[in-house]
């Protein structure tokens, strides 16, 4: 995964050239809403993402898949503008979001929503107040209190959490936290929603409910969905297109069928839930017995 020599001057120049090329690609002419070019992330000595190129179309459900720890969450944080990659660019609607002035970044954030992996609900507010928070803070003067409340309750009803509206986040199960986080992510009627592992750790029925919700939100409101998951059935149920990450690179990209047909053995193993040889613990009983 680690790639030595990123500091190398020649490679840096090559990379900058690549970036420049990427930037001249005109996103406005195409259907691509979000575009990542040569995104590379280095944590300390480790290269977690190694030159990722992605193009996400307007109005599609895009799934990022890959084994855990492969950098899916990191990629999502780059895509939504929370963290700039070490190298490479992310653009939304043709504009580099990591170079936006603060006011425009704020405007962009009001039009995107993100549901974090662990929920990230504010512990001091009830579930309903958590969902109402972005509206209250960003449109509080415009909207009557009761209407903000009704919006929050409607979003909670969409994720099936209305009965828990008055509870505190600390009293929720992990799955309920996730659903509340999704409700909060769609509170501002965003055009893009980023979801980090929305179905991980949920029972199959609740997970199917979330999948259904994602598809419906996409179909009814045309929200562009970027969903990170390592849950295969879920990915298959919702994805228009997907990218599979392996070792910090995009191993396959396209529709479900295209990804399967790509024939990458790692992806087949991932799909078949087989352990890769390299990761299988070596148990050589015989050798130990002989010695």
């Amino acid at each position: 995964m680690s790639r030595a020599g990123w500091g190398d001057a020649a490679q840096l120049a090559a990379l900058q050239e690549l970036q420049a090329e990427g930037l001249t690609l005109d996103a406005r002419g195409s259907d691509d809403l979000i575009r990542a070019v040569a995104v590379t992330t280095v944590f300390g000595e480790r290269t977690v993402l190694d030159g990722i190129d992605l193009a996400i179309r307007r109005g599609e459900v895009f799934v990022l898949m890959g084994p855990s720890g492969c950098g899916k969450t990191t990629m999502l944080r780059h895509l939504c503008g929370l963290r700039a990659p070490t190298f490479g660019t992310v653009s939304i609607g043709g504009r580099d979001i990591h170079a936006l002035p603060a006011a425009e970044l704020h405007a962009l954030r009001l039009r995107t929503g993100m549901a974090f992996q662990g929920g990230a609900l504010l512990g001091s507010l009830t579930v309903e107040e958590n969902v109402a928070l972005p509206l209250r803070e960003n449109a509080g003067r415009q909207l009557p209190r009761e209407v903000i409340r009704q919006v929050a309750r409607a979003k909670l009803d969409m994720v099936g959490l209305l009965p828990a509206a008055e509870r505190m986040p600390a009293d929720l199960s992990g799955g309920m936290c996730k659903r509340a986080a999704i409700a909060r992510a769609i509170a501002l009627d965003p055009e893009i929603v980023f979801l980090d592992e929305p179905t991980a750790g949920l029972d199959p029925i609740t997970a199917a409910g979330i999948d259904n919700l994602i598809v419906k939100l996409n179909a009814v409101f045309g929200i562009t969905m970027v969903v990170v998951t390592h849950d295969l059935p879920s990915a298959y149920a919702i994805a228009d297109r997907m990218a599979v990450f392996f070792d910090g690179q995009v191993a396959a990209f396209g529709t479900k069928d295209q990804v399967l047909e790509a024939g990458d053995p790692r992806i087949r193993d991932f799909v078949d839930r087989r352990m890769r040889d390299a990761e299988r613990p070596e148990i050589d009983v015989a050798r130990h017995m002989i010695l």
């Binding site: 609607g93 504009r95 039009r111 501002l188 055009e191 409101f221």
Partner: peptide
């Protein structure tokens, strides 16, 4: 918010209304 003509996020961001706040 209406489904068909999606608000265009690729217009200059400051010029675009924040969904439904015109």
């Amino acid at each position: 918010m209406a489904p068909a003509p999606n608000p265009t996020i690729d217009q200059p961001l400051d010029a675009v209304r924040v969904a439904g706040s015109d």
